[in-house]
Design a protein around this nucleic acid. Structure first.
Lengths: 341, 341
DNA sequence: GATCCAACTTACAGCGCTGTAAACAACCTG
DNA sequence: CAGGTTGTTTACAGCGCTGTAAGTTGGATC
């Protein structure tokens, strides 16, 4: 089957190309008769506009790129879903790029060796610092996600990580937990995300006049549940005791759950566990995870809105938006009567 | 910052556009001196080729669309990851389209009202039947995923669902399970996927001369863990007893796990549970899920390979490829000594 | 030194669409 | 009925790149 072009339709309908184009775009000033005639030709030939040509002519691609570390990370896959939905609401299609926690891949996203592919980029960096991002001269609107430290050259959406971590700690304290651990340091994670969460953790403890024990801050070599399980196991093995733990994400919390179970600790009786991201992974864990819940829908909507404004030409330094978060309380750290120790 | 075009570089370097293009494309027959001169101009101006223009000129987009029901379904998000990786290996970028278990959205994917956006489509239908797919005249290469019933008009990759289900049943039988349930019917799921799994389930029982009890086939109103939990709970409540259950996917199995736990049944002691898809959700469930494991990497690679061949012009009727599967054995249905009942 | 060849470079016509400006038509005014 | 309006359609020049065919150059050949 040959490709049908606008010109072909025009010839068959006996009108100019532009009139066909007008019909395709539902331009109002076309006489009904003309419209009918053109539509007939379109249907007869099975004409479909060539998007690439349209893009070249208009300079708009109607596409945005979403660059995330891993598409199958529960948080990112859920976030992707909302971004995809919000994007489609606004007439955009989404091109997904995985950076796989890899610095070079992150740089490649911004360094775009090609142009004209997408109208804008939503990017969640893990390895790049905001300074690095600022250094690159870009020519595509960019919205940053995650906890990178306040870049001035791009818009940015995040939740208040300090407050969120504090909320988690408060929740544990309210149940009577007294030795609360933090699981979240990851080697090579220099985005400041962990810093902020750690800060909130400290604030939470300090405001309750609790001591700050550095032994209670665990770190893992990488982002997987396996790594986190190992970190918790090592802590347990070295005799460190704790009755609550707040984890940098649900994956980590899931790993912690496993390690605790293997060690014979009961959750939440012996140790209460708080996750982060409120993902399906945590909702269906056993016990189900209490988790800090960023409003992902709002996050996605805000990112798209800001990106849209930039695409529409808005200039100026980077704006920062905080979206709301809450605490989804489930079995691993229930609310209610404090546990007796 | 103004857009830099090929012509601008050519002017600065004092050569023709085509020579610049040759340098950009690493065309071998360019003298080193010329290459240097051009590269200098490219760097100085910060030239980036415009992909849209390139596409229009070449007719290739270098993009494929991946149309799946839900990007945040564990199976699909993991599959997406492999598809993205395999695609990038082959120089393709991936455009993700969610169909959200919605017939109209699935039709829209194939009905493409526009052309020239992608070179090919990988599509996992849930609501469309292969007849529907065959009816539509398409002009883009298409590879189907999942268990749709053997379309003749498009290539197709799947695992042997009948055999896989049978393997699951055999595994349960080998442990001494005698009342094995199947959880998988979903209203409106007409892809035949469930049919095949159900068939395998029956074959597994028959070859062991086990009776086939229709009460042991559970159905859920939709695809979520909530729905599945409810289905299992209802079965339990109505007094149906079973000591093994095989579920249409890990999400369903996760729901089943919850329902069983709430009902006080121990897994695997009282009921052994087998999931399907071998996702992270199941790997970190408690107890961790034994699950039928399609080789997702192979699935992705095969789909891309077939699509690539079609894109390169291969004609002919739809081909069908079966990729391998295995059984990932974990806590919910361990191997080893049969359970005494 | 004339001839030929291979290696390199250039000019230019598209790819299929849209925006602009201009042309044309029909309809009002006064 | 000339002149002004509004409404509708057309012609055509790009958008930025690549493929083709034609041109140029330097050196090997006899």
């Amino acid at each position: 089957m040959k490709k049908v072009r606008l010109a072909d339709v025009a010839k068959v309908a006996g009108v100019s190309m532009k009139t066909v184009s007008n019909v395709v775009h539902n331009y109002p000033h076309v006489t009904p008769e003309m419209r009918r005639k053109v539509q007939l030709a379109i249907d007869e030939l099975g004409y479909k506009p060539n998007l690439t040509a349209r893009r070249l002519a208009t300079g708009k691609t109607g596409m945005i790129a979403l660059a995330i570390p891993e598409i199958d990370h529960p948080y990112f896959s859920e976030l992707s879903r909302y971004i995809a939905e919000e994007a489609s609401l606004r007439g955009y299609r989404v091109l997904v790029e995985q950076t796989l926690n890899n610095l070079a891949a992150e740089q490649a996203v911004l360094n775009d060796r090609e142009a004209g592919l997408v109208d804008g980029v939503i990017f969640h960096p893990v390895r790049m610092q905001s300074m690095d991002i600022a250094m690159l001269r870009r020519d595509v609107p960019l919205v940053l996600l995650g906890e990178s430290t306040m870049p001035v050259t791009a818009d940015h959406v995040m939740i208040d990580n300090v407050a969120a971590a504090r909320d988690g700690v408060r929740h544990l304290l309210a149940q009577g937990r007294r030795r609360i651990a933090f699981l979240g340091l990851v080697a090579g994670d220099i985005t400041g995300s962990t810093d902020q969460r750690l800060l909130g953790y400290q604030q939470g403890l300090l405001e309750a006049k609790m001591p700050l024990d550095p032994h209670l801050v665990f770190s893992a070599p990488d982002f997987s549940p396996e790594d986190s399980a190992e970190a918790v196991q090592r802590a347990l093995a070295s005799g460190i005791s704790f009755d609550g733990i707040i984890c940098r994400d649900d994956r980590f919390a899931t790993g912690a759950l496993h390690a605790l179970r293997n060690a014979g600790s009961r959750v939440p009786e012996d140790v209460a566990v708080v996750g982060w991201d409120d993902t399906e992974l945590g909702r269906w864990a056993a016990p189900s995870l209490t988790s800090i819940a960023p409003d992902k829908r709002e996050l996605a909507a805000t990112a798209l809105e800001m990106l849209g404004e930039r695409i529409d030409g808005l200039q100026g330094i980077g704006r920062h938006r905080i979206v709301s978060h809450s605490l989804s309380i489930r079995e691993s750290a229930p609310a209610g009567a404090p546990v007796l120790l």
